[in-house]
Structure formats: structure tokens, C-alpha cells
Simulated scan of single mutants.
Amino acid sequence: MANAQDSTDQETAATYPDDFWTEAESPVYPRGAVMSEDKLFVVDSDAPGVWTVPWPANKAAKPERYVTGSRYLRKTMSRPFSATPHPEGGVLVGDSATREIYHVTPNADAPGGQDAKPLNGGFLGIPMALAVSPDGKTIYVGDAERRATFALPIEGGEPELVVRVNARGLVFDEQGTLYAVTPDAEAVIKINVAEKTSEPVVTDRPYGFPGGIAWHDGTGFVSDVYGKCIWQFTADGKTEKWFEEDLLLGPVGLSATADAVIVSDPKAKQVYRIDRESKEVTKLFAD
């Protein structure tokens, strides 16, 4: 008679065939870039998962795979679009394939070398953008399918509608205001999460196709996928082109610090650090 451990092993083997998880050795389509205290997380839709390089970073390093997605259609993290650090460790991953947000932490003994806890029960459509509230208690999600922004507890639960804003990128400012970038005529919108209200900031569609948003100390940044550039904006709605070089082929994910803007470019298969003062560019993925 098989013991409990044998049964568990058989179930695991049946649930996760040998080729269930991707075996990509380097990023293929790095579309996100967000920092934790010691890592830069880069979500990849085509080599499904999340890659990391040490942070702070001022030179290129070989990316390491932190989250591994499935190679199987519509299985765990087989098509992730967004990621952000979890305040208690690990990373939150928004997966369009399973309509899910996962809290992923490394675990060498688990399938795929990780624990991946689903948080919303498949309620969402396409979680294109994620942001965690400054107090670390709430996840905000831009759902591209419902063209709306939702919230759910950090420990998981059914998402609640916050505002009808089609967020493709989300970021909090220093005062706790949530900024969203959208593909619509109102390109940047600020959201009062407490009152569940929104107000346009940048209007009249100045960007070709915005892909990501970042904020630091009173200044916002937007990546322009079609324009192949990065814009900056202020809370009063003024916006201007900030960086445009031939090396940008289709910039998407953004993060910002006091001295740099970090941008992922899936077409270039690269993540760049751009100095805010000199505009000097550093590749963060080693060739």
C-alpha cells in the first residue's frame, strides 16, 4: 500500500510533467522593470516568468531567473504581463493566461523551485499593471479586459472596483496618490483610492502608445512604445519629451530613482539605466 508521501509524489508528477516549466536561459521579451531593495525585477512574457539583476545596478549583469512560468497554454504564469515586489518578500506576478495574480517566493523543494500562491481566484481578466499601496496592505490592478482599476487585500481575495480607468501602468507618488497611464485620450490619470475617484492629468493623447509609468520626487515618466522615447510629466499636466535615442526600439516598463530612469525594451531584449542628469545609458543585461 502506498504511503502519503508516495501519493503526494504521484500527484505532483501528474500535475507537473517534466516539460511543464520553461527552461529559457535568458530573457526573450522583457516588458517590465521594477525595483526592490536588492533586486531589479523584470517580467518576461515570452520566456514566461520574472528575471532579476542585483540592485543598485551601474553595470551589466547576467539576469537570473527568479520566477518560472509554465510552457503550457493557460497554465501557471504562462503569459505574465506585470510584476511588483511583495512587501513581505518575493514578488507579485500578474498573469493573463490564468487571469490571476500570484505571490511567488523561492522554494527549492517545490515544483518549479517556487511557491506560487494565487490571490484573486481568476476573477480578473488581464492584469496589465500592479502597484502595492504605501502601507503594504492593498494591491491595485489595472485590468485591460474590463478597462478598469481594481483593488484586493495583499493576502488575497475578490477584487473590488476602484475606478473605470484603463490602467496599463500604475505608480504611487509620495503623497499616496495613484497615477495611471492609459492608451486612451486621457493618457495620465490620478486616482484617489480612498474616495474611488479619478481626475485626468495629461490629456489630448500626446503619446504614440504609452507602455509604462514611473514617478519620483514630483516628476513622472511615461514610456512611448510607438514613439520610441520617454516623456516626463508633472502633476499639473505639463509633459515633454525627456529621452529619445536610436537604442530604444519599443520601451515599455519604467522605474525611477533620484538619479536614474530604468526602462525595459522587449524589442531590444534589454533593460537600460538612463542617468537623469547626463542622459548616459548603461545596459543592465549582459550580452
Rank of each mutant, 00 (worst) to 15 (best):
M1I: 12
T8G: 10
P17S: 06
D19I: 01
W21T: 04
Y29N: 15
E37W: 04
D38M: 08
D46W: 01
A47Q: 08
G49C: 02
W51H: 02
K59V: 00
K62T: 11
R65K: 12
Y66L: 06
V67W: 08
T76V: 14
S78D: 03
F81D: 14
A83P: 12
V93H: 11
A97Y: 09
R99V: 00
R99Q: 12
Y102S: 07
Y102L: 01
P111V: 06
G112M: 07
D115N: 15
P118K: 03
G121N: 06
L130E: 03
L130A: 06
A131C: 03
V141D: 11
G142D: 11
E145R: 07
I154L: 07
I154M: 11
L161F: 13
V163S: 08
V165T: 15
G169K: 03
F172S: 09
E174D: 08
Q175C: 00
T177K: 11
Y179Q: 04
V181K: 07
P183W: 04
V188F: 02
N192F: 01
V193R: 08
T197H: 08
T203V: 14
P210E: 09
V225Q: 13
Y226M: 08
W231Q: 10
T234W: 02
E245D: 05
G250Q: 04
V252N: 13
A260W: 09
S264T: 05
V271W: 00
D275G: 05
